[in-house]
Design a protein around this nucleic acid. Structure first.
Lengths: 204, 204
DNA sequence: CGCCGCGCCTGACATTTGTCATGCACCGGT
DNA sequence: ACCGGTGCATGACAAATGTCAGGCGCGGCG
């Protein structure tokens, strides 16, 4: 371990960010070179500091961790990305890997394993939470068509059909139909439940 | 600072818990005497270790941080409680203070201030996020009657009226009426939206 | 005491939502 | 070129949801 592994830390919760920094700072072979709190600052920081590994939270203001991952992979392929997230929505994992992430850790994992995950990712290995991987497999790809997804997304906040229709320039009947299809496919019996299920599976 | 401040740490996310532990462990005048990951273990741990300050997350499996606070205050009044939470739902603060918490910190606050917050709480002061306090004041007390709250809570998961009615042994008309009242009072135009608004204000 | 206000409950009625059958356009395989 | 499958769009109909007016019991107050 001649030179330490250079780390970038991105999490919108300052307290968590600082705490992770303290935790990883205890490891002699890790060095934190940047800490940021918004997704749209990730690329800039990566360009400037060229870290070996970027630790990104999924939920961030500005730009979510998945999109940030895509940017980083495209612009600075030497930097590997390790996603850290609060809750293990099955679909997050799939999307993260598709975006080019090398690892995916939920915040439920013991603190002692985080440093190891960083080292593995740095070594070129993939790190994935096994339980979450299983969930992801059963969740499968989104069964929703693009349009259905769009309509469901627009209905997320509880807007009336008429409002959604206006937003998407559709007739009310069409909106209802897409919603109905989504309800059927998600196994829900209700648009609210359909939204919840889809969100949990990362289909929105 | 003859004897260090003895701390208990409760957060369901192991990674965050460990990270906070590392962060606070750096302070010479703080000593972490217990770390737990579930709300229903808090009281037991407090009884055993008698910490000066208990750092509790609001969202935890088993028993939420608010209820845990009540227990601790009732059983071990010498232990002061500092609530730490992910998202600053206005109503959480009110409920936390009512339950007897001495402080309330959101995870957005800078890491450097956490240790200070702990010290202040230990000194008998109250620590409250100022921005959140303002939000809480505008949110005000819940306008919902007990029954309305109960019905809205039962409808949270998108259950049909008939199901809710059965669950609470009410007629469907009654359920609809309570729901309607809640919708009106929350300014929503929809039960889904009413649920969201109420949750954000901590009225559920 | 009698009155008023409030919370709770209920059924009737209007509105919104969910389901279904149908038509159209596009794509890939034969 | 034809055909079957799929996604998108739409209106008619059925079911669930939201609104309203009204009844009942209780506690506070003149």
């Amino acid at each position: 371990m001649s030179t330490p592994i250079r780390l970038l830390l991105a999490d919108d919760q300052a307290l968590v960010r600082g705490a992770l920094s303290a935790l990883l700072g205890l490891e002699p072979d890790l060095e934190i070179v940047a800490e940021i709190g918004a997704g749209d600052l990730v690329l800039e920081a990566v360009r400037e500091h060229r870290p070996d590994v970027a630790l990104l939270d999924v939920e961030m203001p500005g730009l979510d961790g998945i999109s940030a991952t895509e940017q980083v992979r495209a612009e600075v392929p030497a930097t590997r990305v390790l996603i850290v997230t609060t809750f293990g929505r099955p679909g997050y994992l799939r999307r993260a890997l598709l975006a080019g992430a090398s690892g995916f850790v939920v915040k439920d994992t013991p603190a002692s394993q985080l440093a190891d995950a960083v080292r593995r990712v740095h070594a070129g290995l993939r790190v994935v939470d096994p339980a979450l991987a299983a969930d992801t497999l059963v969740a499968g790809d989104s069964p929703l068509t693009p349009r259905e997804t769009e309509v469901l997304r627009a209905a997320r906040d509880g807007a009336r059909v008429a409002v959604v229709a206006k937003r998407l320039h559709l007739s009310e009947g069409t909106v209802r139909n897409h919603l109905s299809a989504a309800i059927g496919k998600t196994g829900a019996d209700n648009r609210g439940a359909a939204v919840r299920v889809s969100e949990e599976n990362g289909w929105l």
